[in-house]
Amino acid sequence: MSVPPARRRATAEPAWLRHLLLAVGLGFLFFFLLLPLLAVFAEAFAAGGRAYLEALQDHDARSAITLTLLVAVLVLPLNICFGVAAAWAIAKFEFRGKSLLITLIDLPFAVSPVVVGLVFLLIFGAQGLFGPWLAANDIKVVFALPAIVLVTMFITLPFVARELIPLMQAQGREEEEAAVSLGASGWQMFRRVTLPNIRWGLLYGVILANARAMGEFGAVSVVSGHIRGETNTLPLHVEILYNEYNAVGAFASASVLALLALVTLVAKTVVEWRLRREVRMLSTALPSEHN
């Protein structure tokens, strides 16, 4: 969207207004984005590099990191399978109730994380629907890994599907139909045609889902039980240290999460760029005019 400056002149704001808007907009971003980001690292290193490293080598911090990674590793594959399946059905077929399904996929975005946590507590908790049965069989769900995984599945459910549905709709059915008419089996069609076509969109969704899976706080906090060294994910660990007035420890762990966020942003930007190129290819691959 670069318009040559000569063309812009007739419709540009006066210089003073342009500068004012720039100052206000960038100032807003400075105070609300950049400053917090810098503050995380400044606080983490407030007591020097050694204290920072020590905080990260703490046993509880490391087990929190491990648990956070484990949750992401367990949740993401399921989320990918769901996202691809839902997008395939929605983008390539017509059926009754399709728009309802799309709306329901959005639902986890709208529900408060605390409510999500409570919901699983009500089902699997001691007084919950399956609580007595689970207790009798000595299966731990709530205040243990299963519940953390379940709430994370709930929270991250829409990400991959939301990315893939518009992409696959834009790509249409014809390439897959061509593959089938050339004799490809369902799996060959999916692996050789569909998957390469959606790989960037899929990756984009996974990056977003991963960031959310690792960073989720509210829902996990309700069902985790905050057992140190066992059911504390990294965000919960941050909370505990902060509430104990261990600022360096809290911000050291927070800086790991902030780094994760920055990596996410970079990866997202790169993938977005590839994705845009793909979509541009799509628009040139499909001639717009035809009567």
Binding site: E174, E175, E177, A178, A179, S181, R192, V193, P196, N197, M281, L282, A285, L286, P287, H290
Partner: peptide, 15 residues
Amino acid sequence: RNVGFVFQHYALFRH
């Protein structure tokens, strides 16, 4: 069916 089908918008595999 062993039918060769040429699509309106060609449907070439873009990757």
